[in-house]
């Protein structure tokens, strides 16, 4: 039965009439399910076949507004269906459904051409938002924790980052793009409740402009249960990723700060500001 209900639907969202070996699917269905006075065996299993695909496609559709905006609904559904055939859900929760979508886009680019690189960034970014939402947090690292460390040993300190914090190095500024997409969707929703058909049509026709390629570093984080994006300078991104990889404070700073581009005093003020900000945002936590 599982093979029957998990087979992709036809273009008009019906169960396929031919089975994998060329037999009529109705013959296969008749061996499994009883017909009744209103529905054939095929029609009864088709209810489950349609419910399965509608459920998983709806879930991805909700999770990927950026990808939808770039590809359009038709191409997005084709991508989602191909992805779910290759990587059906392996988790008890639909939350994890987009977990391998970025990998799929990179390794199977035909569904996203000519925007594969942008789609890859969007899939990573949209998955980061899922991860940030409900990944664990740990007790905050505080000034008192820092003062407990003798000054001579502070350089050797290993700071931990909150498990939920997601650090992304992207080829496109998809953070701004997602905000624009969300804003447009909100306007469309509001428009549906109003009596201004001309305005609604104008909004529907006005697609969100695809972003130009530009190296972008972003932290996706949460504060008071809300998800936020924060742009990072490349040096700040390098410091944070080094800390996450287990580097000491000294090593992370050495990795992050470019040599001899600015005076040490310029960097000192800047880095101090970053750390102050990261502590205020609760990004630094105690090591386990």
């Amino acid at each position: 039965m599982w093979r029957v209900i998990s087979r992709p639907l036809t273009a008009d969202s019906r169960m396929q009439s031919r089975w994998t070996d060329g037999r009529a699917t109705s013959t296969v269905a008749a061996q499994i399910a009883k017909p009744n006075d209103r529905l054939t065996s095929f029609e009864r299993l088709e209810i489950y076949n349609r419910m399965y695909w509608f459920r998983v496609l709806d879930s991805l559709y909700e999770d990927c507004p950026g990808l939808r905006a770039v590809l359009g609904d038709t191409k997005f559904i084709r991508l989602a269906e191909a992805y779910l055939v290759k990587y059906p859900s392996g988790s008890f929760t639909l939350r994890n459904l987009p977990g391998r979508l970025a990998h799929f886009i990179r390794t199977t680019p035909r569904h996203t051409r000519p925007h594969t690189a942008l789609c890859h960034d969007l899939a990573r970014f949209e998955w980061a938002r899922v991860e940030v939402f409900d990944t664990a947090s740990r007790p905050l690292f505080t000034i008192d924790d820092l003062l407990d460390v003798p000054p001579a040993r502070q350089g050797k300190l290993k700071l931990a980052l909150q498990p939920y914090l997601q650090l992304l190095r992207l080829d496109y500024p998809v953070d701004d793009f997602i905000l624009a997409v969300k804003q447009r969707e909100a306007q469309l929703l509001r428009g549906e409740a109003s009596n201004a058909p001309t305005e609604q049509r104008r909004l529907r026709e006005k697609k969100t402009k695809r972003p130009p390629r530009a190296r972008t570093h972003v932290a996706v984080h949460r504060l008071d249960s809300q998800i936020y994006f924060k742009r990072l300078e490349p040096a700040a991104y390098r410091i944070l990723t080094a800390l996450r990889a287990g580097a000491t404070l000294e090593q992370a700073l050495a990795t992050g700060i470019p040599r001899a581009k600015k005076s040490r005093s310029d960097w000192a003020a800047k880095v101090q500001g970053w750390f102050r900000n990261w502590m205020e945002l609760g990004w630094l936590c105690r090591r386990e």
């Binding site: 939402f133 409900d134 498990p163």
Partner: peptide
Amino acid sequence: SENFMVDGGRPLEV
């Protein structure tokens, strides 16, 4: 149950 079988964030706070 499955909506709250997570490690943190808003679901558990609520």
